[in-house]
Design a protein around this nucleic acid. Structure first.
Length: 156
DNA sequence: GTTGAGCGTT
């Protein structure tokens, strides 16, 4: 007789409350520091982990935010869920996964979530798959997407 | 400066 409402949490439909939040639907240009500025408004954050693609080096469109307290994570989840960053509607929930998997040797065993260059397009044959592979200019200070001063720049 | 469903392997 199970009269309690205890659900077997663990699925992504019913994530159990934890200090780790999963942020999905991110823009490819939203970086950790952007998320930290947003989420840190609701509590101290341990770490922000944006998941990057091991092949292209770009963001996979989701990240994980570690709060120090579970209550802050809950508030941030409610607050930031549906928030728009870089023109993208983000979705925030408790992370169903704990952390990154074991640092297995070899290559990325996950599924590619983004079309790669040189796969079917003959236009990119011989070209670099990503700026990481060449000495392309890759500024770290590209965080000009989420900045309040941008809004002031647009107004005239 | 690419859509986009999506839970992570630095």
């Amino acid at each position: 007789p199970m009269s309690s409402r205890r659900r077997h949490l663990g699925s992504r439909d019913n994530p159990e409350p934890c200090r780790c939040l999963g942020v999905f639907g991110l823009s490819l240009y939203t970086q950790e520091r952007d998320l930290k500025e947003v989420f840190s408004k609701y509590g101290p954050i341990e770490q922000v982990q944006v998941v990057y693609d091991a092949q292209t080096g770009r963001s996979r469109g989701f990240a994980f935010v570690y709060f120090e307290t579970e209550e802050d994570a809950e508030e941030a989840k409610e607050r930031c869920n549906g928030l728009e960053i870089d023109g993208r509607k983000i979705r925030v929930d408790y992370s169903i996964t704990k952390r990154a998997h074991t640092p297995t040797p070899g290559i990325y065993m996950g599924k590619p979530t983004f079309p790669r260059y040189g796969g079917g397009s003959s236009n990119y044959r011989g070209r670099s798959p990503s700026p990481y592979y060449r000495g392309h200019r890759y500024s770290r200070s590209r965080s000009r997407s989420y900045s309040p001063r941008l809004e002031e720049r647009n107004k005239g």
